[in-house]
Design a protein around this nucleic acid. Sequence first.
RNA 1: GGCGACGUACCCAAGUGGCUAAGGGGGAGGUCUGCAAAACCUUUAUGCAGCGGUUCGAAUCCGCUCGUCGCCUCCA
Length: 484
Amino acid sequence: MIRVYNTMSGEKEDFIPLVSKKVGMYVCGITAYDVCHLGHARSAIVFDIIKRYLRNRGFTVTHVRNITDIDDKIIARANKEGVSTEEIAKKYTEEYYRDMERLGVSRADIEPNATDHIKEMIETVQGLIDKGYAYNIEGDIYFEISKFPDYGKLSNRNMEGLMAGARVDVDARKRSPLDFALWKSSKEGEPWWESPWGKGRPGWHIECTAMSNKYLGESFDIHGGGADLIFPHHENELAQSEAYSGKTFVKYWIHNGFITVDKEKMSKSLGNFFTIKEILDRYDPEVVRCFLLSTHYRNPIEFSDKQLNEAEVSIDRYYSTVLRVGDFLETAGGKEKAEGLEEFENTLSLFTGKFRGAMDDDFNSALALGHIFELLKELNRFLDSKPSGSKAKEIVTKAQGLLAEAGSVLNIFQRKPEEWYRSLIKVKKISLTEEGLLKKISERQDLRSKKDWASADRVRNELQSEGIILEDKQDGTRWKVQVG
RNA sequence: GGCGACGUACCCAAGUGGCUAAGGGGGAGGUCUGCAAAACCUUUAUGCAGCGGUUCGAAUCCGCUCGUCGCCUCCA
């Protein structure tokens, strides 16, 4: 049984979708007004892994991820740059998809834009007016939260507390300062759509109500996003959705924690952010994923190069082991010898259960990674015992398969070691070519065969200063990229 | 001011009532090696911010104190 922490109840609950084995999942994407930073990456990766795991466990998942392409910030940016809001939205949407692709985040099944759903939003707003939940003031439509007694149930707030916060905007025309806009009349020079209330544009929250309703229905299983969306975005979305449909909007609310820098939330406004592009210029995408998954998704993660480097070492451990396994399968003799075979077989038989146990418990990828590294160690230990024969080959192959399968859920360990090292050469900006490298290695091999250790060591040291590590094996020398 | 989260070794990080407190990094010692590297082995928290309490039993539940952070305005 999968257990998920539900923001609504504040507890872990058994995960039972509304329709057996089918999951509807809506995750808030981005507002396309600027490039994405690592915080956006975390949210995207977390929900990508949740989706992959649910599919791995046999659920059919319909994943919807929206793009907000009309909004105050986009308008501001367009005005600043003297271009249309469409151009701004298009540019940053493209950047977003490029970043996500490089990060290895899979595409959602449905990726709706707000501006393609104006009609649905108008219908939703009209429905809310008809039901008495919304009112019109000079073309601005507001949701009246006093008509929705459950308001605040997601973020655990009440009206008094919110009023006391004194940070809500004061618009004398609104019946309550807490009422929020469903539809905004357009000011001079702003983009607009025709509506029953005049020219205007949608409010921030209404797109998610209209689009989730269209693609997943009035009630669905998972709604996700960063923890900063809980209030006001998801609270407002929930209010309008349930007021409109009269049904429970979402069964499980899932929110990921923040990335911090010096303990403070990484954010645009604080300016303490690293863009995805900047990070991918210095680290392999798999390293970024491993780094982000090594902490439980609800906890904050402190950004640090040290931690990213450690993640790099971890990934390298896997690919180094794959190389070892390759050597073993090629060179191991036919004589049946396998010390500790039974013990190793036993370890393997327990692995999948442990991995699932971790992921079942609110998608605990950090614990799952722990089990993966444990198995990696056991595999290396078995190889250290110098086994040989078909039985040993079989079990080593099986072990590697288990690691790759678990890795596929976390979207790590899916490449060949050569691809990993090529990527590292790029990311670490090593100027040597593979050809030049092989030439040096062969020269050094001659020196070694002449037992000219001093010269051979000099070559090795030269390469090391360029970030290349040489490993002498019985049948030759292997190069790797220095990690960490 | 209101609401909430967190504080586990040198660093990162799982664990939320019961075997010896996962895993990774780093340190120390060792095996292997021409020397290295990699890998493996041993070691590195009688203790989980502090103080009380509940319990046969608590890092884990409850209370208080200290510290850090988040949301209450756009925010992944």
